[in-house]
Design a protein around this nucleic acid. Structure first.
Length: 426
RNA sequence: GCCGGGGUGGGGUAAUGGUAUCCUUGGGGACUGUGGAUCCCCUGACCCGGGUUCGAUUCCCGGUCCCGGCCCCA
């Protein structure tokens, strides 16, 4: 037996139906916001990712040499690819440029709950500006994407990395130390921050400022409690616009650092609190990556959603949609009737209904049992007595009610019956 | 990379130093044109490798995969 590689998954028809429904809901939301889909390669030159995040991420990527001795990496995320695409081929398109993507990503990490080596992301990038209305548009899209999946329980936290970054780079000249300090702040390990500052002979008052900023959480008004910066007005405007978009339940959290990455301005995260250690389902913010890849500096704001975690969160809320793979099952009463059954199933399928027919040469009793176990809502019984009247029997699998309908009109009659069933349910 | 808990038919389980129970699913049959019923039959499993042993699914070691957590999380 050949096993699946560690950290990968197979998805069966029922699970895929749920995943596609969620994905489709989010795609529709992106389109409603004017975002167009892009697809980029599953693998890229490894440099694309190391340029942005440093050599050490090679350890966490699937990297290999191809037959031309090129260093290739399976993408660990898609933002870098989208920006590369933008720089290479779309830089002269009218701004703002609104792009979204869906795809699988790969990270060589230890799997655990909500964390896989192959996982799926849907993300969006808005290229062109970094003003509050841009940020609001992106956050609004992110929130609407989450809402569209049917998920109820999630927390939106918005921060601004610029506040901490400018404070720290002002006070700490050594970039490496500044980076370490940011990393410690992200982990909320302020003791370590204090020790690092002390070890480098930096005034303890910086630690006070840092803890004050990182601890700034709550409504927009908590901004008043810390020293006014450029970012303050930006955030106030952002929250105001979000309110106009119908998003008034997000928290301000200036402690969001999002690791050591490329974000420079607004940053935001969405958590699903019902999940365990890996509860973050979405992360994003504004950044300038384009010049790193050889383009003009252009501001962008984007986010990525962990589709797998969204699915887990929906399961935790028991929102998994029902999966009925078929509407109609056609069953012949005897072998001589099979050829009529095929003609009829074909007619039903042509009408756009999901129809299936017995392929196992089962008797009628077993066929009905199969239809029932597959969740068919209706059965069409093709028998000799009916055919004598150029008709078939239509059976409601729930009630057991049966009616005789003309064979030429099966599809239409089925359609009506299905509509009736649906309206009774709702 | 580290820590803890696990791997018995497709799924769920029981027992055991002498190759395995039960349920379910799947396939077939009875019921000879009406279904989640009943009865009968069949397919199908001890994660992999090494060690101890006359003999290992069972005990020991290593690996692998799964579950959860740490680190990390672009």
């Amino acid at each position: 037996m050949i096993q699946r590689p560690r950290g990968t998954r197979d998805f069966g028809p029922a699970e895929m139906a749920g995943r596609r429904a969620v994905e489709q809901a989010m795609r529709n939301t992106c389109h409603r916001f004017g975002f167009g889909e892009v697809v980029t390669p599953t693998f890229e030159q490894a440099e694309l990712f190391t340029l942005r995040s440093g050599e050490e991420i090679v350890d966490e990527m699937y990297v290999f040499r191809d037959k031309g001795n090129r260093e290739i990496a399976l993408r660990p995320e898609i933002t870098a690819s989208v920006i590369r695409f933008f720089v290479n081929e779309m830089s002269t398109m009218p701004k703002p440029l609104k792009l979204y993507y869906v795809g699988n990503c790969f990270r060589y990490e230890n799997p655990q709950s909500g964390r896989y080596r192959e996982f799926f992301q849907l993300g969006a990038e808005l290229i062109g500006n970094d003003n509050p209305e841009t940020d609001a548009e992106v956050i609004s899209l992110a929130v609407e994407c989450m809402r569209s999946t049917g998920l109820h329980n999630f927390d939106v936290r918005i921060g601004h990395i610029g506040i901490l970054k400018s404070l720290i780079t002002e006070e700490i000249e050594d970039g490496a130390i500044a980076g370490n300090v940011l990393r410690m702040i992200d982990k909320e390990d302020f003791d370590a921050v204090g020790q690092t500052l002390e070890a480098n002979g930096i005034s303890g008052s910086l630690l006070e400022s840092i803890t004050a900023i990182a601890g700034t959480k709550g409504g927009v008004d908590v901004l008043e409690s810390i020293e006014e910066t450029e970012a303050h007005e930006h955030l106030r405007e952002l929250f105001e616009i979000l309110k106009l978009y119908g998003i008034d339940d997000c928290q301000l959290d200036l402690g969001i650092v999002r690791g050591l990455d490329y974000y420079s301005g607004m940053v935001f995260e969405i958590d699903a609190p019902k999940l365990g250690a890996e509860k973050q389902v979405l992360g994003g913010g504004s950044y300038t990556l384009s010049e790193l890849f050889g383009g003009e500096p252009v501001f962008s704001t984007g986010f990525a959603i962990g589709i797998d975690r969204v699915m887990l969160a929906l399961e935790a809320e028991k929102e998994a949609p029902e999966y009925a793979p078929m509407d109609v099952f056609v069953v012949p009463t005897e072998d001589a009737m099979r050829k009529y059954a095929f003609a009829i199933v074909s007619k039903i399928r042509a009408r756009g209904l999901r129809a299936d027919v017995d392929l196992m040469r089962r008797n009628m009793s077993k066929s009905l049992k199969y239809a029932s176990s597959k969740g068919a809502r209706l059965a069409v019984i093709v028998g000799k007595d009916e055919m004598a009247k150029r008709s078939v029997t239509l059976r409601d699998m729930k009630s057991g009610e049966q009616t005789l309908v003309p064979a030429d009109l099966v599809a239409e009659e089925l359609e009506k019956a299905l509509e009736n069933q649906s309206s009774e349910q709702s």
